[in-house]
Simulated scan of single mutants.
Amino acid sequence: MDSAPRPTQAAAYLEAISALNVTTGAGAAERGLSVPAGPEDLSERARVVVERSDELGRSIATRLGDDTEPSERELASLQLLAAAAIDLAVASDLATAAADGAAAGVERAATPGILTELRPILEAPAGVGLEGVTGAGMGVERRPRSSGPEEARRLLREDAEATLQCIRDDASAAGRAALVGLLQVPSPPLKEAANVAAHELLKAVGDSSSALIRKAVALVAQALDKILAALGPQLRERVRAQAADWVEGLKQADAFGSLLDRVYEFGRLKEEVVGRVDVAPAGVDVVRLDEAAKQLEALGARFHQQTNVLSQVVKGLAWGRPWILGLAPPWGPLSLTTAYVALIGYTVYAGGDYLDWYRTGDSGRMDFVVGVRSVVQRAMEV
């Protein structure tokens, strides 16, 4: 039986969100949203969103098993992150509505804008892979076939260097943004964040909390669960623990790039990839070299799409930070720290997967794509 999420699951989730009109007062006119009939009606609509979010997340997560095609796992992980970003935006809107639109420090989430950007990812049917999602190949130029072996080798070398650098830089930017958010959490509980379960966040709300706040917290828990699920069933605990260790000594976000260079062994990796192209055997197929160059361009574009979605999740956490930190201790700081640590871990491991880092032989790796090293190595085979 096919376990891929039916299009109706994503549609039901998005439809439930569209039924929410959570802005009150003057802000409603500014955002073009109508005011709901009343708090009880809004709470019921929010309950449906929470249920649909849970159904969608569980269904997508079934496609992350080892028996699933790597391209489908790549898309499924991105869909989980996209849904997490939307969950966080809606949760912040609900928290704002719970305070009658006047809660100090709660920034209005741009849910409509996030939906516009991330809807194509959620609605992508099983089987298309990330390349089938609108925008996944944006910026990829399809050059004409090379005129001969020397030109093909030169162009492949240029593409290999550029793709390696772009993936490293995109990972650095995404990880740095998550680290900036983490450093704004008061005394982030890194060790505890490596072990907490998403559903434990529900302990943050007591009987005195409003119905809307309870639904908002439930959506934050759903988002956290999706972020953790995106790591895959074999990696989620390991990556969180590793990421917590990585960031424990980082006090400045600018140090994240240096962390990546060390973890990826970037200088060694780049030297190996470029060296393989430079010593390509005389009989190597020009068509194969040209095809490898195209694969590298597409690889870089797909990872850029990954980091775009990661930035939306970081933005969602930033919107929610003021009211989440106001939850009963220790759940506010703990939930934010857990999310940021998981995002940092995902960023590092996903970037390593696209680069084809030297941890590829590790059975606990994230292995969704044929990375840069493998693409070049296969192209050099005679």
Results as ranks from 00 to 15, higher is better:
Pro39Tyr: 01
Glu161Ala: 11
Glu123Ile: 04
Ala177Gly: 12
Val205Asn: 00
Asp290Asn: 15
Pro189His: 02
Glu272Phe: 08
Ala229Lys: 05
Leu164Phe: 03
Asn21Ile: 02
Leu317Thr: 08
Pro120Thr: 03
Pro70Met: 07
Ala4Cys: 07
Pro149Glu: 04
Phe368Val: 12
Ala255His: 15
Leu212Gln: 01
Lys294Gly: 09
Leu80Pro: 07
Leu115Phe: 02
Leu122Thr: 03
Pro322Leu: 00
Gln234Lys: 15
Leu156Thr: 12
Ser92Ile: 03
Arg145Ser: 12
Leu64Met: 08
Glu291Thr: 14
Gly267His: 08
Val185Gln: 09
Arg268Ala: 15
Ala194Asn: 01
Ser3Arg: 15
Asp261Cys: 12
Ser77Ala: 13
Asp353Arg: 03
Arg214Gln: 07
Arg359Cys: 13
Glu141Arg: 01
Ala293Met: 10
Ala342His: 04
Gly57His: 02
Leu94Thr: 04
Leu75Gln: 05
Ser209His: 07
Pro7Val: 02
Arg52Glu: 09
Tyr13Glu: 03
Gly57Trp: 03
Arg321Glu: 10
Asn195Glu: 10
Gly65Asp: 14
Leu269Met: 12
Leu202Ser: 00
Ala253Ser: 15
Leu122Cys: 07
Glu69Tyr: 11
Glu131Val: 14
Met138Val: 05
Thr96Val: 11
Ala82Trp: 08
Gln377Asn: 14
Lys226Asn: 05
Arg214Tyr: 00
Tyr346Phe: 14
Arg108Thr: 05
Arg373Pro: 04
Arg288Trp: 10
Val180Trp: 04
Val274Asp: 10
Gly129Ile: 05
Val50Ile: 07
Ala318Cys: 08
Gly320Leu: 00
Leu75Tyr: 07
